[in-house]
């Protein structure tokens, strides 16, 4: 039986792990390769590396990091952050990334999704969407959630799927950093209306939040960062608990 996935997310800046709370206020949380290997050993199903550096050497630094992760970790991983061209993706995949994630660049140039899925296959194209509720409607936000758009989350999600994305990673800006649980209602709508896997992100604080994301939110995978980085939730304990709740997980 296909297992529900638990995905620790590592925010990377200049080759180091950091974690923002509400996308600001960064704290150093260690060496990404070491952390990745530790997560893989403890039962993480996948990893996401989100590069938030803005230096000119970022591409090279990121490619080096991807190569080191591929060498040391035997579970799949996704790389995202600042990817806006086919060449960026080619380099990352060649260095050993399994998937890439695009966000703002996809909204600015939706054709990028089409191009990437045609050239590299849907299976490696994750489209990340940050959204928040404004006057009762979910609106897509850009640049790490800072810039609002008029784009409706559910319309955009449908387009993303039609253009060939293999997965949708949905972060609720309303929930991110709150540790109050995932946006389960919106997740369930996405899961029911799309036929690609949905990754839930934003709001994990307790084990039951993951249970809710899988049962109420019907998510295929759940992503979190700080609860894992700061050992608030231990991966092995989380998976055992999910198993007891009847959720299929890899143990």
């Amino acid at each position: 039986m296909l297992a529900k996935r638990i995905i620790p997310c590592l925010d990377i800046k200049n080759g180091r792990t950091v974690k923002g709370v509400n996308f600001v206020a960064l704290k150093d949380a260690g060496d990404p390769v070491e952390l990745a290997a530790k997560y893989a050993e403890n039962g993480a199903d996948e990893l996401v590396f989100l590069d938030i550096s803005a230096t000119e050497e970022r591409r090279k630094t990121l490619a080096d990091l991807v190569l080191r992760v591929a060498e040391n970790v035997t579970i799949p991983f996704t790389v995202g952050g600042g990817i806006s061209a086919v060449q960026d993706v080619e380099i990352l995949l060649q260095c050993g990334a399994d998937k890439i994630s695009i966000n703002s660049a996809a909204v600015k140039n939706p054709n990028l999704i089409t191009e990437l899925s045609q050239q590299f296959g849907s299976q490696c194209v994750v489209v990340a969407v940050d959204a928040r509720q404004m006057d009762g409607r979910w609106k897509v936000h850009l640049v790490g959630g800072k810039v609002p758009t008029q784009l409706d989350l559910f319309d955009w999600a449908k387009e993303v799927e039609q253009r060939g994305a293999g997965e949708l990673l949905f972060t609720s800006m309303d929930h991110d950093g709150t540790k109050d649980g995932f946006a389960n209602e919106a997740l369930a709508i996405l899961s029911d209306s799309l036929s690609i896997p949905i990754i839930a992100s934003g709001g994990a604080g307790k084990i039951e939040h993951f249970t809710d994301a899988f049962i109420k939110g019907k998510a295929d995978a759940a992503l979190a960062a700080s609860v894992f980085h700061f050992n608030e939730i231990e991966l092995k304990t989380l998976k055992k608990e999910l198993q007891q709740q009847g959720i299929p997980v890899r143990i």
Binding site: M1, L2, A3, K4, R5, D45, S122, Q123, G166, E167, S195, I196, P197, D220, A221, R250
Partner: peptide, 11 residues
């Protein structure tokens, strides 16, 4: 089409 495609994950 009744399944989520691609299948992604551990089985």
């Amino acid at each position: 089409g009744t399944l989520k495609v691609p299948q992604i994950g551990w089985n």
